[in-house]
Simulated scan of single mutants.
Amino acid sequence: MGLRVLALALAVLPGGAFADTWCDDLWLARNALFAQAGQCFGTPLGRATFGEDCTGAASLDDRQKRAVEMIRRQEAALDCDVDTSRAAPLDVDHLTLRLRMPDQPIRDFESACIGWQGRAVTLRHGARADAVAVIEIPPGSDIGSYHASPYAGWHFLTVTLPTGLTAAGWTDRDVFAEGTCEMFAG
């Protein structure tokens, strides 16, 4: 979906809470990359989210720079203006996990695979084949995707297992293209 269509869709939705949540998620993704590179934060929100364990100057690699550019374009299209004077942590799904991830997804529209019927899917800590496995998604799980990936061939998914446990992570499998769900949404 193009950024203009996205901005138009958000503009016609009632209330600002949806856009605020979306912008908070984008702010987290962008700044988590800087925090991992050692950036220090001077705002209350930055310190509340990332702490004060930093080196000062952040140097991003090319992969991180491309991700930050994509995030900034989406923030501009949505006219995001996150209140960084607040000290309350962000209300972002899987915040603790996301803060530890070396690769950050970019908020996008949600899709869901209700009742996964395919073979097990491994979710990883990062968008790389050598990243630590977080969890295996077994058949019967519900899989959500509400983030785009700046990393070619990788998909960020959230999952609710049949046991009720929830998790999130990266996979190089496009489960939505495989089409093995009881039902699709989004």
Rank of each mutant, 00 (worst) to 15 (best):
M1D: 04
L3K: 08
R4F: 08
R4K: 10
A9E: 08
A9S: 12
L10Q: 08
A11K: 10
A11I: 03
A11T: 07
A19S: 09
D20G: 11
D20S: 15
T21Q: 10
T21H: 10
T21A: 07
C23N: 05
D24I: 13
D25A: 05
L26K: 10
L26N: 01
L28K: 00
L28E: 00
A29L: 01
N31H: 15
L33T: 09
A35V: 06
Q36A: 09
A37Y: 03
Q39F: 02
C40Q: 08
F41G: 01
G42I: 09
T43F: 09
L45A: 09
F50M: 08
G51C: 01
G51T: 10
E52I: 07
C54I: 11
T55G: 08
T55I: 11
G56P: 04
G56L: 03
A57S: 07
A58D: 03
A58I: 03
S59I: 09
S59T: 06
L60G: 00
L60R: 06
R63Y: 00
K65Y: 12
V68R: 03
E69L: 13
E69R: 05
M70D: 01
R72G: 00
R73T: 05
E75L: 04
A76M: 07
D79R: 03
C80L: 08
C80D: 00
V82E: 03
D83M: 08
D83Y: 05
T84H: 01
P89G: 11
L90N: 04
D91S: 10
D91V: 03
D93E: 09
H94F: 14
T96C: 00
T96M: 09
R98D: 01
L99R: 10
P102Y: 00
D103K: 01
I106M: 02
R107W: 14
F109Q: 10
E110S: 11
S111G: 12
C113D: 05
I114K: 13
G115E: 00
G115C: 09
G115K: 10
W116R: 15
R119Y: 15
R119W: 15
A120I: 15
A120T: 14
A120R: 15
V121Y: 14
V121Q: 11
R124N: 05
H125K: 11
A127T: 00
R128G: 08
D130A: 06
D130S: 11
D130V: 04
D130N: 11
A131C: 04
V132W: 04
A133I: 07
E136K: 15
P138S: 13
P138N: 13
P139S: 12
S141R: 07
S141T: 00
S141A: 10
I143N: 03
I143A: 06
I143D: 08
H147G: 02
S149F: 13
P150A: 01
P150W: 04
P150S: 01
W154I: 02
H155T: 12
H155W: 07
L157D: 07
V159T: 12
P162W: 15
P162S: 05
G164M: 10
T166I: 11
T166Q: 14
T166V: 02
A167G: 05
G169R: 13
W170K: 06
T171V: 15
D172P: 04
R173Y: 02
R173M: 04
V175C: 05
V175K: 00
V175W: 06
T180V: 12
C181N: 04
A185W: 09
